[in-house]
Design a protein around this nucleic acid. Structure first.
Lengths: 190, 190
DNA sequence: TTGACTAGAACGAATGTTCGTTTTAATCTT
DNA sequence: AAGATTAAAACGAACATTCGTTCTAGTCAA
């Protein structure tokens, strides 16, 4: 594990655990066992650490979403796979999900766009748009439909991160998916 | 306007504008025109200001939600009114909505429960539960149903706070409501 | 020997808070 | 009514601490 990786992974841990501002550079050097000098050799400043972490995360999500698009034909299958992905990351790497959904980046990355206008979220909206064009999803404002389709999942994932769920997160997947899909799917018996 | 109120309202403004940690006590004294000494006379410390602000907000929401419960008969009407309330606060008092949904309280109010397990959110879940008992809402896990019913609205409100909407927020209400209600309502045609 | 990397002490700026004092307003005494 | 007394509220300079960052010195690999 390179020094850079050590820094990034402890930053992820500490930022989600205590928050960006409650984490000092001293905390990072202590936990990562990388000295101040080294950290400032690899990163411009504290913000640079956060920016690198954020970028890694967006890249990783973009890749996973593109995989999903290639591997599934219908919009329904794509969106279901996206929801499964979100649930599985939230369960196996809660820090990653917390940093993505929960941490308020704008407070310390003032130059970044808000998460929900980032590339991964745009990709999800593109899937929804495609579903409308194919007649799987009812025609309406894409942002409204996307919000309804994924809003429920995001809420329950947030609840999971807050530790207020009394069952494992995975147990909610089918319920949330069936609700959410019903919210936006075309009504066949119309 | 009392000194206390002046402090609370500028804290709301600055905390949502720049974030809690990017707001110094000096910023608050400057903007509120209340001296450092006075602030520490009314509040224990910086965290105390945030805690008071947060509590005011929860109280206000609890009152509004109880009004809604009294003024509407069916769960459907109640939930619709709640969604209207959320939209209207988000539009007329975006700071309030931002502080409620967007600000990461746990980073500076470590003793508070997360928002979504706070009293207002519990009241919303109680409405959903009631709707299930009355046969308006399909039987399933209450948390899952509540997340799906309000998750879409919360997402689009967040988008609105991020400034990425190209129409006024209110224009999304009917779309989001019909999606969201369809997600959880009982299907009449069995 | 040179250049990339590591180390951690030292620095200066900024922060949250304290504290001694002054001002204001209310209450009591005569 | 007028002065004396008290308590609450306001003030802001000063303080100790913490933070992000820089700097100098040293190590290692090629």
């Amino acid at each position: 594990m390179t020094a850079r990786e050590k820094v990034i992974s402890t930053a992820l841990k500490l930022f989600t655990e205590k928050g960006y501002f409650n984490t000092s550079m001293r905390d990072i050097t202590r936990e990562s066992k990388v000295s101040t000098g080294s950290i400032y050799h690899y990163f411009k400043d504290k913000e640079g650490v956060a920016a690198a972490l954020y970028q890694d995360m967006l890249d990783r999500m973009r890749m996973e979403l593109e995989d999903i698009r290639l591997q599934h034909e219908t919009a329904k299958a794509q969106c279901r796979a996206v929801m499964e992905l979100l649930f599985s990351i939230a369960e196996s790497e809660p820090d990653v999900m917390a940093f993505m959904l929960y941490v308020k980046h704008r407070e310390f990355l003032p130059n970044e766009r808000p998460v929900c206008s980032s590339e991964p979220f745009e990709l999800m909206r593109a899937m929804v748009k495609n579903g409308m064009d194919q007649g799987e999803i009812e025609q309406r404002d894409v942002l409204a439909a996307s919000s309804c389709l994924f809003g429920g999942a995001i809420r329950i994932i947030t609840s999971s991160l807050d530790g207020i769920l009394d069952k494992p997160l995975a147990d909610y997947l089918d319920d949330v998916w069936s609700c959410s899909w019903r919210a936006v799917a075309v009504t066949r018996q119309g």
